[in-house]
């Protein structure tokens, strides 16, 4: 009797899984038309536990062939940085940080099909995290998505040992849903994601700057300025980056452009004052500080210290 119950339970569960696979609706946003795309991403054969590293390598090679970009890490270094031996894989943050160490901007994809298809249309390959199995027996896997076929409703991916393996959109949706639609766009400096918003993109670039790739970051900030000319914050950010690599006249110009739109901004006045005193214009710098007012005690402290430092020189 008990056996029959078990059997019933097994069949019912199986039926539930099969049915839930069948009733999946078309996950694409309604009313939008996306063109078929096929991005020529080089294929690398899979290796046990190293799909994170391999995915980065494939996308990096694509950009190396198509843009002025050269990877900073070898395949061995990518392997070493991405692998957690006892976990048999790569954490999402590690994929992101390793791609960055390789000189790429890692832009977190909005978790939806619209963002994914927009990037593919712009010929930006996207790395997504999927679960090949169910949540009770997870098999996490990173794959580069290289294209979409509108008529067949299939994504093209370097899924396993075949290049450009097609995956039907419904299956893809099931697998991708299990990672809450996690994906990342890896781009060379100067390139901007099709689905990007200005602040989120600037933050991704700043992450690259923080690990020491200032010149690369500057190239991306410059592109950002072309794409979002109305965002004056980019001038401030550029001013800081130029200062960091001693491109002082460009830094000065950037701060001044920012101040044209935000004349009393205490942070920009502070930074420009320091720059002026560094280039022998102490009086002008101190005069700028007179215009800098803030209610924030932290900022007040910063302004005071800057004044003291300039006076000391």
């Amino acid at each position: 009797m008990a056996t029959r119950d078990y059997l019933f339970f097994l069949c019912a569960t199986a039926a539930l899984f099969i049915l839930s696979g069948c009733v999946a609706k078309d996950p694409l946003p309604q009313g939008k038309v996306y063109p078929s795309t096929s991005i020529n991403v080089p294929f690398i054969s899979p290796r046990q536990d190293l799909c994170g590293s391999t995915s980065i390598q494939m996308v990096a090679q694509y950009w190396q062939a198509n843009r002025n970009y050269s990877p900073k890490l070898s395949l061995q270094e990518l392997d070493q940085r991405t692998l957690l031996p006892l976990k048999g894989g790569t954490l999402q943050v590690e994929l992101v940080s390793t791609a960055r160490a390789n000189g790429l901007i890692a832009y977190p994809l909005e978790p939806n099909f619209d963002a994914l298809l927009s990037e593919l249309s712009a010929h930006h390959p996207v790395i997504v995290l999927i679960n090949r199995s169910y949540s009770w027996y997870p098999m996490w896997h990173y794959i580069p998505v290289n294209g979409y076929d509108t008529t067949r409703k299939e994504f093209l991916t370097h899924f396993s040992d075949q290049p450009n393996e097609p995956i039907g959109i419904k299956t893809f949706a099931e697998l991708w849903k299990r990672s809450e639609y996690w994906g990342v766009v890896l781009l060379p400096p100067g390139e901007i994601p099709a689905s990007a918003t200005s602040k989120k993109f600037l933050r991704s670039v700043y992450e690259l700057e923080k690990v020491g790739m200032v010149e690369e970051a500057i190239r991306s900030y410059q592109s950002a300025l072309m794409r979002w000319p109305e965002d004056s914050d980019i001038h401030f950010i550029l001013g800081n980056s130029y200062s960091r690599v001693d491109r002082l006249s460009e830094a000065e110009e950037s701060y001044r452009r920012f101040l044209l739109r935000n004349p009393n901004h205490p942070l920009a006045l502070n930074n420009l004052a320091l720059l002026l005193s560094k280039t022998g214009r102490k009086t002008e710098g101190l005069a700028l500080l007179d215009n800098a007012v803030s209610k924030d005690p932290e900022v007040q402290k910063m302004l005071r210290e800057t004044r003291e430092e300039i006076l000391k020189k």
């Binding site: 290796r47 046990q48 536990d49 799909c51 692998l83 790569t90 679960n131 996490w140 896997h141 396993s160």
Partner: peptide
């Protein structure tokens, strides 16, 4: 408990 993608040979 975080997912670690790594499944090359399933």
């Amino acid at each position: 408990t975080l997912p670690a993608g790594g499944d090359g040979g399933s």
